[in-house]
Design a binder for these strands. Structure first.
Lengths: 204, 204
DNA sequence: TCTAACATGTAAAAAGTTACATGATTCA
DNA sequence: TGAATCATGTAACTTTTTACATGTTAGA
């Protein structure tokens, strides 16, 4: 999915400046979506304007001078055609999960627990936000926007539950069994010790 | 998070070829992580070898000629140092959510439902996989790998539940109320109709 | 014999970030 | 007066994908 369509989507809500588009994602993406940098936004706005999807309303009157962008007829059509295209499966880059699934038995579990606690806090902050935002009295949340936020809410609650379960399992040495028919856990530790050499092998 | 560290992480499990690393992500990423292309993998393997993090075991004997890569002592250390760094918050690009939250009232809800149904199928396939994989009798799943898979399972189940609730709400016109203190829904539709012109405005 | 899977790689393009440069306005 | 926020933009860099090129081997 392209930044271009994401920009059109934001502009469909209301005319915005480049600065505005960035801040829209800063707090409201709510773990549903990713932000973009000015280095992406401004060149894309320029490009979209040149191609006739959006136009600028230069406002030098009300205090600051800024460029508000609004969709053209062509922009609306492009946006709506994009909406109708079946969305591709989400791309997720979750470093915590990558780290946890490759964590090995010569590593200190306390460090992993601290990673989980950090994540729990971040997730809780976002959860708090998505629970308050649709009820704050001034933000615009459409009916379908509300449904999307409901997804974020359910997902974040599930995540917190999983983190709590995982910390509990790590602390009480109550981990699931796994599946290791070929003794891979042992092989891994041996490969590592052989590579590192001697008994300098314990990383705690 | 870098492709380099992800490659080191995969190699920590067992020595692998470039081809192998890609297939590792093809099926096992399980919605937890993203795949990478050969155009990323092979140059990175070369670079990691040059920098002394991995070394190649060229195997021309057993049938096919291939380059198995294994971690060096330096590679193990780099991998483990990376494991200890607090992971950054996941990056998610969920096109379905972006589309749903910017869907507007002149769009056909049936199309949105078809998007949801497609996602439900994709999610169900992955869920089935993560439920069977740790019990298939031959794959290696470490204890912490099992915990990671448990996360995927919970997350995917939650997602399916949300999809079902959402489809139900869309079909029975039972959507949540949203929050629109400034009449933005109306404003949006007016801006759109003005831009598109006349009453060609209905996109169904 | 043919297809699918195995296997390695490069070049060009696309996508996106970081760092920098600049300046106005608001508010404590 | 100084900091935070609003505001726009570019250049260099990094990262990653796409498309191409090439060839082997196992099995139906």
């Amino acid at each position: 999915m392209s930044i271009e369509h994401t920009i059109l989507a934001v502009l469909s809500f209301w005319p915005s400046t480049g600065y505005n588009i960035k801040s829209e994602f800063e707090h409201k993406a709510a773990g549903l979506y990713w932000g973009m940098s000015y280095g992406s936004i401004y060149p894309k706005l320029k490009k979209l304007e040149e191609e006739g999807f959006i136009y600028a309303i230069e406002q030098e009157d009300e205090g600051r001078k800024k460029k508000m962008y609004e969709l053209t007829a062509k922009g609306w059509k492009e946006f709506e055609n994009w909406l109708k295209i079946p969305p591709s499966f989400p791309i997720i880059k979750d470093e915590l999960l990558m780290k946890m699934s490759t964590w090995h038995e010569d590593m200190d579990n306390e460090v992993l627990i601290s990673h989980l606690l950090k994540r729990k806090e971040e997730t809780s902050d976002i959860l708090k936000f998505v629970q308050e935002w649709p009820r704050n009295g001034y933000s615009y949340v459409s009916k379908l926007g509300c449904l999307s936020i409901r997804y974020a809410e359910m997902k974040l609650e599930t995540e917190i539950k999983w983190i709590e379960e995982s910390i509990e399992a790590l602390q009480n040495n109550n981990l699931p069994d796994g599946q290791d028919p070929h003794g891979n856990t042992e092989k891994l530790l041996n490969r590592r010790r052989r590579a590192i050499g001697g008994d300098k092998g314990n990383c705690q």
